[in-house]
């Protein structure tokens, strides 16, 4: 077991981090390429303001939190806060960043991290239940939308349990290995799935497929699901 943990914390971690970093870099480069090609072509108009506006709006989507599908939007917003803060700034992870990247980040308090983790888990559960139970959402959800949520749930739950032995039903090492492997699977999947919106969100306006994240834009996703992908 220890050998597996060593492998998962050593080479496998380097691999998944590498795939994610290179994959996102690739998305970025190719998007910038599209951008400059677009500029060279007849489409002189560049929606800079809109791009900035959209990016900022997603950083603080006040409008969406108060209207439309309020529960889903709020759960999504809360989830994103937890999904960014906990993996990056949890005290146990700081050591890892320092070891692999040589940067020492600030850490958030363990108590705060616990609360945030629980909230994030609950938010993911809300998203999951909504996607399955609400007919409108279900109609526009692809299999990958649901399974990715399950996969995101895994490292959060296993990480929380590994840090809290009192609730942990499995031996610590097993739980820790589940945590490592599921988190690494997620990292590897980032460039190949919709998780790549980490980078692509900024190019939302100019992407060839308008993968609209706005509530209400789901109809287009539904088109994709139904195979009516007219514009490629």
């Amino acid at each position: 077991m220890q050998a597996w943990i060593d492998f998962a914390m050593g080479p496998l971690f380097a691999f998944s981090l590498g795939v994610m970093a290179l994959g996102l870099l690739r998305h970025l480069v190719l998007q910038l390429d599209t951008l400059f090609r677009r500029k060279r072509s007849r489409l002189k108009y560049m929606p800079w303001n809109k791009m900035l506006h959209d990016s900022l709006e997603w950083a603080l989507p006040v409008r969406h939190l108060t209207s439309g599908n309020v529960i889903f939007s709020n759960a999504s917003f809360v989830f994103h806060i937890g999904a960014i803060l906990v993996p990056l700034f949890y005290a146990g992870h700081i050591v890892l960043w320092e070891q692999w990247l040589g940067v020492k980040l600030w850490s958030i308090g363990n108590g705060f991290a616990d609360v945030l983790t629980v909230i994030t888990i609950l938010a993911v559960l809300v998203l999951l239940v909504s996607r399955i139970a609400v007919p409108r959402l279900r109609a526009i959800s692809r299999n990958s939308d649901v399974s990715l949520l399950v996969l995101i749930l895994l490292p959060f739950i296993s990480g929380f349990l590994a840090a809290h032995p009192a609730f942990n039903p499995l031996p610590w090492q097993t739980m820790f290995l589940i945590h490592l492997l599921s988190a690494e699977a997620l990292l590897i999947l980032v460039p190949f799935t919709k998780l790549s919106h980490i980078v692509l969100i900024f190019f939302d306006r100019i992407s060839e497929i308008h993968w609209q994240l706005r509530p209400g834009a789901g109809d287009r996703v539904a088109e994709t699901v139904l195979g009516k992908e007219a514009k490629v």
Binding site: P11, L12, A14, F15, S16, L17, G18, V19, L22, G23, R26, V29, L30, P191
Partner: peptide, 15 residues
């Protein structure tokens, strides 16, 4: 090619 690269580069590195 870049899609191949992003798998092969880290894999080659760790092996």
């Amino acid at each position: 090619a870049s899609l191949i690269a992003l798998i092969v580069l880290p894999l080659a590195w760790i092996t």
